[in-house]
Computed example of a mutant assay.
Amino acid sequence: MTMISDQWQGRTTDGDRHETSRRNARSVQTTVGWIFWDPGAVARYEARGLPGPLGYIASRGAPLAPAGPEALTAAFGSISSAGIALTFDLLKGNAVAFRELWKARDEAVDEGLRRYAPGIVDPLVEMGPALWSAVDRLPRLGRVLFGATLSMPRPRNPLLSGWHAVNAIREWRGDTHWAFVAAAGLTSAEASIVHNEWLGYEDDWLSKSRGQSEQEIAEGWNMLSRKGFAAERRLLPAALRLRQKLEDLTDELTALPWQLLGRDFSTRFAERLEPPCELLLARVDETAGPKYQPASRVRERYRDPEESAGS
């Protein structure tokens, strides 16, 4: 049975735990996500014959590569299925080649963290063993990419070990979120459209940034209209209410790692990682743009206009 740290007992409320989950999700996402557009990583991918976006797919998807492109498409949720298929074609489905991209990313992570956010090095080294202890106690059920990630060798390099522990927590949260999206009956295209407007981005920006085709986007809008979530290619409040509910459920159901680690550790994680993560987010602004990595951005919780009018 999974034991929760006694630091969360007593007067700690569910709201406290959920807020910790929400707060630390930003640092988890940022600690990992900056590498997706890092020129050091992209150069390594290109040296192995893959452009940056496909290198991201190969390096992140290496644990699931033996299962094939359809499995990876299911696990990635909103990433272009065509891009995933092309990655497999270029690498000829060779699992060893995927693992070489995983190693290339590790090299770029170690180099980039030390160069662009040196303040994150000591916290990841020091907190890594405790983070792995929590990761090893997280439930695998329904979390395929997380489970596959655990099959990869753990680095002996203490910085990379800490980074990979954070990455495992990120994949666990991602698998959990996509389970809620699937349970809500949304397709990949529909989910991207709803997420885009929930973020306040212009029409279909998020869908296009993830490589979805115009045909896929159009079908997503058609499906949302049939379900009563959109009209004339505009989302209705019900769609945004659903998206906020999915976010709240994700925060609630991914509080477990922080419960296992305890309140003091979780607070220390936030306080020590947030400053260097701001530097990593600035790096994303520079290498990709200020709309990328939305999970790292501070934003207001969606307020239903009907609820606001009645208050």
Rank of each mutant, 00 (worst) to 15 (best):
Q212K: 08
S225Q: 15
R143E: 13
I193M: 04
E100P: 01
E171A: 14
N222Y: 00
L261S: 12
V96W: 11
Q244H: 06
V109I: 13
V298N: 06
R140T: 03
Y302E: 12
I217F: 15
S207W: 13
A231R: 13
D106L: 01
Q7R: 07
T12C: 10
A230E: 06
S133C: 08
A41N: 02
S188H: 07
A43F: 00
G289K: 05
T250Q: 05
T87V: 03
Q293P: 02
P39M: 04
W132V: 10
G220T: 00
G147S: 10
S308R: 12
E197C: 05
P290D: 14
L260C: 09
T30P: 01
E216H: 03
L249N: 11
D175M: 09
S311L: 07
L159T: 15
S266C: 11
E216L: 05
A75W: 00
L224I: 04
A148I: 05
G52Q: 06
E107T: 03
M3H: 15
R173S: 14
S21D: 05
S192E: 01
A239F: 03
S81Q: 10
E70N: 14
A255V: 13
R283S: 14
D106K: 00
E111W: 03
A231D: 07
H164P: 04
F180M: 14
W258Q: 11
K291C: 06
R173H: 11
S308F: 09
Y302S: 09
F98P: 00
E286I: 08
Y116W: 08
L281K: 07
L131F: 02
D122S: 09
Q244R: 14
D304W: 06
R26L: 06
L199C: 03
P69Y: 14
S225H: 05
L253T: 06
V109L: 03
W221H: 11
R11N: 08
W102K: 00
Q293C: 04
A183D: 15
A75H: 02
T30V: 10
R156T: 12
L159M: 11
F98C: 00
M1L: 13
A82I: 14
L235W: 06
T149V: 05
I193P: 10
L150P: 08
P139Y: 11
A309P: 13
R268D: 11
A71M: 08
L138S: 13
T31R: 02
T13A: 11
